[in-house]
């Protein structure tokens, strides 16, 4: 399986994402330049963390207009797996691929912290290697990560099982509604999350729990 990791000007965690994908047995990863609409036949897309276009104007607001994003939208409509991490999550919300929005943290400051995330739903391509209720130790690092959706939409997300990851009790770092850490689209092939699973793939640098998301994607691909 081949992952494609998008590189916008201002992306910071794209190389980390490539390294994480390459830890999955039998998988490779390649960088996709934001200005190139061709996805080069990759089997799944990762929209990485960072500060695309400096996050000027509003987080993720400019990146969604990149030529490559048109192709990512088309790819997702055909059922392709798309994983958005942190800034990638913000970009996917701006692009309309995911519901809701990310607002400034309750504390209004950048926060880098190892947190526990709970798997709410494991019957899907991003979390199939986890069991429901499993706690994953994964770091967050962001200024704008407070998940918000209007009450009716939030209810619908719960009802449709679109809330896949939650911060464990006492671990919500940013004031996200209902402790939401990661959501999918209705079809379940696009996941956005604020925690950085690509920074939890090796015990040497903290934890290996995040690798389960990449392993799950590979298994879903078959």
């Amino acid at each position: 399986m081949r992952f494609g990791v998008i590189r916008f000007p201002g992306s910071c965690d794209e190389t980390d994402a490539v390294l994480a994908c390459e830890r999955v047995p039998g998988c490779s990863a390649t960088l996709l330049w934001h200005g190139d609409a061709d996805l080069h036949g990759v089997d799944a897309v990762v929209v990485p963390g960072g500060f695309s276009y400096g996050d000027y104007l509003r987080v993720g607001a400019i990146a969604r207009f990149s030529p490559v994003m048109e192709s990512v939208i088309a790819f997702s409509e055909e059922g392709g797996l798309v994983l958005g991490i942190c800034n990638g999550f913000q970009v996917l919300c701006e692009a309309g691929l995911l519901p809701g929005a990310l607002l400034p943290n309750e504390g209004l400051r950048f926060l880098c912290r190892q947190v526990d995330v709970e798997v709410v739903r494991s019957s899907m391509p991003f979390t199939a290697d986890c069991f429901p209720g499993e706690r994953l130790s994964i770091p967050v690092k962001h200024t704008t990560g407070r998940y918000y959706a209007p009450p009716a939409e939030l209810e619908s997300l719960h009802a449709h099982g679109q809330i896949v990851l939650k911060y464990a009790a006492g671990h919500n770092p940013n004031g996200s509604l209902d402790d939401v850490a990661g959501v999918t689209n209705q079809a379940g092939n696009v996941l956005g999350l604020m925690p950085h699973p690509e920074h939890a793939v090796d015990p040497l640098t903290g934890s290996r729990d995040g690798l389960k998301l990449f392993l799950s994607m590979a298994h879903a691909h078959g």
Binding site: T15, D16, K141, H199, T205, G206
Partner: peptide, 16 residues
């Protein structure tokens, strides 16, 4: 103070 800094990007940080 240090929680306001990203100490892990680039995947090399063995001791934070």
């Amino acid at each position: 103070l240090f929680e306001q800094y990203d100490c892990i990007v680039q995947s090399r940080t063995v001791r934070r």
